[in-house]
């Protein structure tokens, strides 16, 4: 009871005793866990390296800037590849996530068992980072843009699939009932009553994912899956920091641009 009576005075406290104890317990537990974790990290850290980090940073920036502007000419092709990895990867993900989400949504799934399989695919795809997918695909189909496209696509399935099936489950039921009552086939019911309701959000999610994928596509090259990440990896390994600076600038501009495009398109849709 937040209000206690002692003699004839009323004491007000924000929480009652049990809640306070639980809150304290929670805080102490969290602090302990964080402390232990910190010990582990700290044990694995060479603190003398950390101590001269500001110096390192200033040297690092000094070597990166001014960037090698001439290197830009060698970046156009990797940039085009990066854009393609993101766009084609998103399209691939969309192509698979679209039917998958109808199998995964409670109100459109043909069978509960199918639903669980679809949900499993979505979860696995989401749990694995695109860079890990890239590692795997480079091992299978060899380095190159194709591995990047597949990596981005495989990661996008889970992201889009999850948001898609959630929006299918949120559709209103009345139009479904009405279209069913006209004697329409199940596919027609889907295309006339569910699809119009979810298309705007599907489009928004896809554009949003494309924007994220541009960012992801800049790094899949680090493990050999094409795009500007290949140049980044080569430049870092060769300690060509002025080239690295140039690459950072290019990535910054491209990602800001894609964010702007995606915001504009989403606005136009809604």
């Amino acid at each position: 009871m937040p209000v206690r009576q002692i003699d004839d005075r009323k004491l007000w406290q924000r929480y009652d005793t049990a809640t306070r104890l639980r809150l304290w317990g929670g805080w102490i537990g969290t602090t302990l866990v964080v402390f232990v974790c910190w010990q582990v990290i700290s044990g694995a850290t060479r603190w003398e390296f950390v101590a001269d980090a500001p110096q390192q940073l200033s040297q690092f920036i000094g070597r990166m800037f001014p960037p090698r502007w001439g290197y830009l000419n060698e970046l156009w092709l990797p940039l085009w590849d990066t854009l393609n990895i993101a766009t084609l990867g998103t399209l691939l993900g969309l192509g698979i996530a679209f039917p998958l989400s109808f199998l995964a949504a409670q109100n459109t799934t043909p069978h509960p068992l199918v639903r669980y399989v679809a949900l499993l695919i979505i979860v696995v795809s989401r749990s694995v980072n695109s860079l890990i997918w890239a590692l795997l695909l480079v091992a299978i189909i060899g380095p190159g843009v194709l591995a990047g496209i597949f990596a981005i696509g495989l990661r996008s399935i889970g992201f889009m699939g999850k948001l898609f099936y959630e929006s299918i489950e949120e559709t209103s039921r009345e139009p479904v009932e009405a279209i069913t009552a006209t004697g329409a086939s199940p596919l027609q019911v889907l295309s006339y009553s569910i699809l119009p309701q979810v298309l705007p959000s599907f489009a928004g999610v896809s554009i949003f994912r494309w924007d994220i994928n541009i960012r992801e596509a800049t790094v899949v090259g680090l493990v050999g899956a094409g795009g500007i990440g290949l140049n980044l990896n080569a430049s870092v390994n060769a300690l060509q920091w002025s080239q690295v600076g140039m690459i950072f600038i290019v990535i910054f501009v491209v990602v800001l641009f894609s964010e702007w495009v995606s915001a504009r398109v989403r606005q136009a849709i809604i």
């Binding site: 009345e174 009932e177 279209i179 006339y192 119009p196 309701q197 298309l199 705007p200």
Partner: peptide
């Protein structure tokens, strides 16, 4: 239907 049950976006 009571709530018309139209497909609003069509």
């Amino acid at each position: 239907f009571q709530e018309y049950a139209l497909v609003e976006r069509l």
